[in-house]
């Protein structure tokens, strides 16, 4: 099947129900997207599918054929993504960093849909888990990115 990832087309020959996460990581070598729980609990695997934040660990690859998939590897190519990254750096958000690919993708999806998000928008969109507890820094960075 053919996948469009970060603007490039990839042919993959894999069982149709394989989660997108493992196609990215094992078949395509794109390890910026992380495995945390495999149950859509933590959000470390968040990517954009047609602009929507999507948990790739429970997304069968066949369901995203024909869509536009964006991963953290292409975040700097996206103007909104770049603003998010700069806000993440400016707020010194990451600690261990393992969840942050997913957090940055979730923030990028939010700001693409709501360039001026309310606090409720932020709380509703930024639901990924962070065991280091960087939640306040994440929210501050989202607010800053929205102002940038």
């Amino acid at each position: 099947m053919e996948l469009t990832i970060n603007g490039s087309k990839h042919q993959v020959d894999i069982e149709a129900d394989t989660p997108l996460l493992w196609v990215l990581r094992d078949e395509l070598g794109m390890t910026g997207t992380k495995y945390g729980c495999g149950l859509a609990q933590c959000g470390a695997c968040t990517v954009l599918v047609d602009g929507q934040a999507t948990r790739s660990c429970v997304t069968p690859v066949e369901s995203v054929a024909g869509t536009s998939i964006v991963t953290i590897e292409a975040i700097a190519d996206d103007p909104v993504g770049q603003k998010v990254v700069e806000a993440w750096v400016s707020n010194q958000v990451p600690q261990c960093g393992y969840c942050q690919s997913g957090q940055v993708m979730a923030a990028t999806a939010l700001l693409k849909q709501s360039p001026q998000p309310t606090e409720e928008d932020i709380a509703g969109a930024m639901v990924n888990l962070c065991r280091c507890g960087t939640y306040n820094a994440i929210a501050a960075a989202v607010r800053q990115a929205a102002q940038a």
Binding site: R25, T31, G32, I75, G97
Partner: peptide, 27 residues
């Protein structure tokens, strides 16, 4: 002093143990 790894950790560029690979490996 800003932490040295923050940009790489904000762009998915840090390789953790789970991300490492060598030629010919099995999973």
């Amino acid at each position: 002093v800003p932490r040295l790894d923050v940009r790489d950790k904000s762009t998915g560029k840090i390789n953790y143990s789970i991300d490492q690979k060598v030629d010919g490996m099995l999973l």
